[in-house]
Amino acid sequence: MSRKTILVIDDDIDLVEIIRVTLENEGHEVIDAQNGKRGMVLAREKSPDLILLDVMMSQVDEGFQVAYELKGDQATQDIPILMLTAVADQTGFDFDPAKDKDFLPVSEFLEKPISPRKLVDMVRKHLPAGI
């Protein structure tokens, strides 16, 4: 597979490094942002091929807001999003990401902890083919 650019938006820098090592090992370029705002800027500037997005950053649902913003912007709306959710992110019965993904504009939910194998599989599955 040709070299792709993958944007990781997550405030856990250790996890970002883990993802970087794994995906660079696959031959991809990894860029990262520690918050949603910076993530939006990078998404527009670098037009990554895929975005890994954490749900809970400084705000409980920051990831969701970013996802909606990405899908609402012509420049970024076609980029596939893999949403990273942590155990216990659900604070009530009202939200159940695995069941409610139809209502959110993302390609897949990945529950943490993410194993490298699963990460590679999911990235392969959702990266746009070709080029």
């Binding site: 856990d12 250790d14 883990i18 942590a86 216990a88 943490k112 902890p113 993410i114 490298p116």
Partner: peptide, 22 residues
């Protein structure tokens, strides 16, 4: 407690699994 320990544990698990893989 759940909230505070979940991230370090899950990141640690990912790190060790990645080390095994690498």
């Amino acid at each position: 407690v759940t909230h505070e320990v979940k991230s370090p544990i899950s990141t640690a698990q990912s790190a060790v699994e990645t080390a095994l893989e690498l």
